[in-house]
């Protein structure tokens, strides 16, 4: 009798705890729902860079991809750009692809920005925001590391230092 009561109470408490636990978990992760999950396949996309070259994420299987979202009006983005460019030059022959996506500004604004900072990596403009939606971008800058199998290994919100970028490159180097 007493044993049965203990079992019943334990079961009821476990059910309640599971319901509460799920609610808390779902609440804390609700912002990331439908967005990019670490360890999962990165959403595929196709964009054309400023030189007219088409970049499709799935074509870069076998290489690590350093994917950065930015805008010309975003101060932290502007500060990290030269660092990304330096590291791009270091790692481009070691199987790391750098793709950067502007969040839909005018071509001239982006061109002038590239010119001003002497950027050499591919820059693409996500005109209608489809890629930003797929990756759940907010706020800027936002960086994703994608490994050679196309899986997201890390996402990073905010400004990067040169050392961080270097360690990120090492992380996705095939």
């Amino acid at each position: 009798m007493k044993k049965k009561r203990l079992v019943v109470r334990t079961i009821i408490l476990l059910v309640l705890a599971a319901a509460v636990g799920y609610t808390l978990y779902a609440n804390l992760t609700k912002d990331e729902v439908n967005k990019v999950e670490i360890g999962k396949q990165a959403p595929n996309f196709v964009l054309v860079d400023m030189e007219g070259k088409k970049h499709k994420l799935s074509d870069y299987k076998g290489q690590g991809v350093f994917l950065n979202f930015w805008a010309t009006w975003c101060g932290p983005c502007e500060r990290e750009m030269p660092y990304i460019d330096n590291q791009y030059k270091q790692y481009k022959d070691q199987g790391v692809k750098v793709l950067t996506v502007d969040v839909g500004e005018s071509k001239i604004a982006v061109d002038k920005f590239i010119e001003r900072h002497h950027l050499t990596f591919p820059v693409m403009i996500d005109k209608d925001g489809q890629v930003q939606t797929a990756y759940g971008i907010n706020p800027l800058p936002y960086t994703f590391l994608i490994d050679k199998d196309g899986k997201v290994v890390r996402s990073y919100k905010g400004e990067l230092t040169e050392e961080t970028i270097k360690s990120f490159m090492e992380e996705i180097k095939p």
Binding site: P43, N44, F45, V46, L47, K56, S58, M124, D126, Q130, V131, T133, A134
Partner: peptide
């Protein structure tokens, strides 16, 4: 309504 499967960034 979107028709067919397109990759993000392609014209819809």
């Amino acid at each position: 309504e979107k028709k067919g499967d397109t990759v993000a960034g392609e014209s819809l």
